[in-house]
């Protein structure tokens, strides 16, 4: 039987065009949705509060004090237990909790006060006078299971730096 030459030359490859279209769409979406600016944000399980206001237009330069659970060893914390985002058991081991500001783990209260003072100095009521109150907001993003005395430390430092506009990060529970 005679086989037509043209039939032999027909391509049997897959048509890649729709796939490439879809993949490009995905890349464009992911590029737009990725937010690399919030490098200050640490991963925490925020406490839930239905009266929380949406943090719609945050000051991009706002200082964030993250209170996070971080352990240096590979093993899991023997105390902290979450299940599907619900706290089952908090961790009371002191050195598992860290205050992290702009990626820096705060070791001393003096350092925390120093950072808040520097931040506060950016917007003093009387510019250049560190003894006047600052209108610079500071957000405390604490894990829901963090012991309260860590928040107290930030409040204390903020008080000393005369930074009074404090915001406490909270997550609005689903309706």
């Amino acid at each position: 039987m005679k086989i037509k030459r043209r039939a032999m030359l027909e391509s049997t490859g897959l048509n890649m065009t729709p796939m490439i279209d879809v993949v490009f769409q995905l890349i464009v979406f992911l590029m737009l949705a990725t937010d690399f600016t919030n490098t200050e944000i640490e991963r925490v399980y925020l406490p839930k509060a239905d009266a929380a206001q949406a943090d719609d237009h945050p000051d991009k330069t706002r200082l964030m004090a993250n209170i996070i659970h971080r352990i240096s060893t590979e093993s899991d914390c023997p105390q902290l237990k979450y299940k599907n985002g619900v706290l089952l058991q908090p961790c009371q081991i002191e050195n598992h909790w860290k205050i992290v500001v702009r990626g820096e783990e705060i070791k001393t209260q003096e350092r925390l006060e120093e950072l808040l003072t520097i931040e506060g100095n950016l917007d003093r009521e009387v510019p250049g006078n560190p003894k006047t109150p600052s209108n610079k907001p500071v957000m405390i993003r604490a894990d829901g299971s963090a012991p309260f005395h860590l928040i107290t430390r930030v409040l204390e430092a903020a008080g000393k730096a005369l930074v009074w506009k404090l915001e406490i990060g909270a997550e609005k529970p689903p309706e």
């Binding site: 890349i27 409040l155 000393k160 404090l166 915001e167």
Partner: peptide, 28 residues
Amino acid sequence: LMIFFMCSIHFKSLEGKLYSYLPRDKGM
């Protein structure tokens, strides 16, 4: 590229806040 973005994506979080101002002129 797609794998990179999928792994590194952090969606803009829908977080809220509660205001808790300190006394303005007295600190703590």
